[in-house]
């Protein structure tokens, strides 16, 4: 059949183009790795502290038991950690609804004498979705409930 050949030719061409395309995409994504990140982790900030005036974003977990409210009522201090490093953060303003200990946070601001002075605070949600009734259960209880619903 004479129709087979050009069809295969086209298929090979398209496959080569696709491979080149995916390669280019992966390369671009890899090159963008540092630029395209929305925030720095505490370990990044500790390893390479940004200049004092430069605005950066710091993201990580709000360490359990670290949130301290100032007497003025609108200033909070807490520690953002990523398991490798810890950075103290200070923020004056209204915190987002999901800003709680043990949860993710992204702070916009600058580093000043080892403390991150945040102008803006964003909460980061994790990938878990759990009903409120299970919140107060112990891990074992929650697991049992989850196992039941499965």
């Amino acid at each position: 059949m004479s129709t087979i050949k050009p069809k295969h030719q086209r298929l090979v061409l398209v496959v080569i183009a696709l491979v080149a395309l995916v390669g280019a995409g992966l390369l671009a994504a890899f090159a963008l790795k540092s630029q395209a990140s929305y925030f720095y982790l505490p370990s990044d900030i500790v390893a390479k502290p940004p200049e004092a005036d430069r605005a950066v974003r710091l993201g990580g977990m709000v360490e359990k038991g670290s949130i301290a409210h100032s007497p003025d009522g609108i200033t909070v201090q807490f520690i953002v950690a990523d398991g490798k490093a810890r950075v103290p953060v200070r923020f004056t303003g209204i915190t987002p609804e999901l800003f709680v200990e043990g949860s993710g946070v992204v702070a916009e601001g600058h580093l000043q004498a080892g403390t991150f002075m945040a102008d803006n605070l964003l909460a980061k949600h994790d990938e878990k979705y759990v009903p409120r009734e299970m919140r107060d259960m112990t891990k074992a209880q929650a697991k049992a409930v989850i196992a039941e619903t499965k």
Partner: peptide, 15 residues
């Protein structure tokens, strides 16, 4: 699909 894995993002990783 990979953006939340490759780069630090505000959006959470896949559930």
């Amino acid at each position: 699909n990979r953006s939340v894995v490759w780069w630090n993002s505000l959006h959470q990783p896949p559930s």
